[in-house]
Structure formats: C-alpha cells, structure tokens
Amino acid sequence: MIEVEGLHVRFDDVHAVNNVSFAVPRGSGFGIVGESGSGKSTVLRAFSGLNPDWTGTMRLDGAKLGRQREKQFFRRVQMVFQDPYGSLHPRQTVDRALSEPLLVHGIGDVEARILRALAEVALPPSVRFRYPHQLSGGQRQRVAIARALMAEPEVLLLDEPTSALDVSVQAEVLNLLADLQQRRGLTYLMVSHNLAVVAHLCPMIGVMLGGEMVEQLSADDLRHNRIAHAHTAALRALSTELEEP
C-alpha cells in the first residue's frame, strides 16, 4: 500500500532524512521509532504532502506520488496529530469539524455520516455540538480520529497519537485504533517515541537515528530481543527497564 524508496529530506544544511526505504502492505501497520530530531516525523510529513522538499520515490497503492498531491490523495490518506487541542479548530463545533471533510470531498449524506462516525469512535451523540475546550483530552483525540475517518481513507498517518494522553485514555485510544483497523482494513503508518505503543499496534518497526533508518525488524523480534543495531538495543533496554518491578 505504501512504498518509500531512497527518501531524502534536507532543510538548509541539515540532512533530516537520509536514504530511507520501507514498504507497508495493505491492512498492515508500520511504526517508526526514534528520539527527537531523528527524522521520524519528517518521513511522515513528507509522505503526507506537508513537506514538499524531498527527493526519492514514494508510492501509494502502486501509483507514484508527485510533489503536489491531488485531491484524491487526501481522500485516501488522512493524518492524526499528537495534540488534538492544537489540531482542532477552537471555534468550530465537533459537528463542523466532522462535516468539513465531507464538504471538501463533495460527499453527501452528512447527517447520517456524522452520527455514524461519532458512534464508531464511541462518543455520545451529545458531544456533536460542543467545542473542543468542552471535551476531555481523550474525547478530543477521538474527534480527531473520527474526522480523519470521515472521507473513508485507506491509510491513516498517526503522529504520536497517544503521547498527550493519560495512560488509561491511551489504552482506550489504542484499542479503538486496533478495532478500526480490523473493521475497515486500514493501513497505518505510525510515529512514536514509545516502543511498547508502536509494537502494540504495528507488526513491523523501523528505528531511526540521525536521519537514517538504522534497522527494520518485526515487533516480535523486538520483543524477543533479536536485534541487530545498538541503538535499537539501547531504546529497548530503556523501555523494558521500567517494566520489571
């Protein structure tokens, strides 16, 4: 579904993404982990079309992507950001936020679709006419996910979708994302600094360090410590150190 080959992104004299290649089959998930500045979010933004300064080859469902994305692309690929408070318009109600993608893509049946979307992310119909500040952090992230699903995309790009949430809410959102993937056959490309979160949702994981993807391994290999690169080992050690009581 997603193919990236020899992707480079440069900002002035910084080589933010250096020769990154990976592929994600339809209905599967690929997680990118790394520390701040490793270039993981830049890969996601280049694929989403938010950053035009890249070279290399990127394909969606076999079709090569250009620098300028067509409208159809944004119907098939949607993004969920880390902080739902920053990504929802503060003066738009949930109803407005959810109907916008329908208007943009000329999709009818607005009323029924909004009610269905709210039900799908397990929000009560009563939140429909509320503003973002009247919702909790978890509810806001559910709205952001519902909005991303409005245009019935095939691919969801997830940029640290649970890092701003409390752990109990994180569990609910991760379960929701797993359910949605199963129900709709969605393909996920996810970025996170949390190895356990990524391994929970994605069968394949790419580790980034200084702009390069230094290792690709399955979640299973990561769990069983079948690791090739020292940086992956270091990240895993830090993550599991806290798990053992």
Binding site: A171, A178, A196, A199, E243
Partner: peptide, 11 residues
C-alpha cells in the same frame, strides 16, 4: 493498561 514489550496483550 500500559502496553509492554515483554508481556504483549492483543487488547
């Protein structure tokens, strides 16, 4: 409710 690397849970 924390996902872990050593004790994976499907849900």
């Amino acid at each position: 409710c924390l996902p872990t690397l050593t004790h994976p849970k499907s849900r």
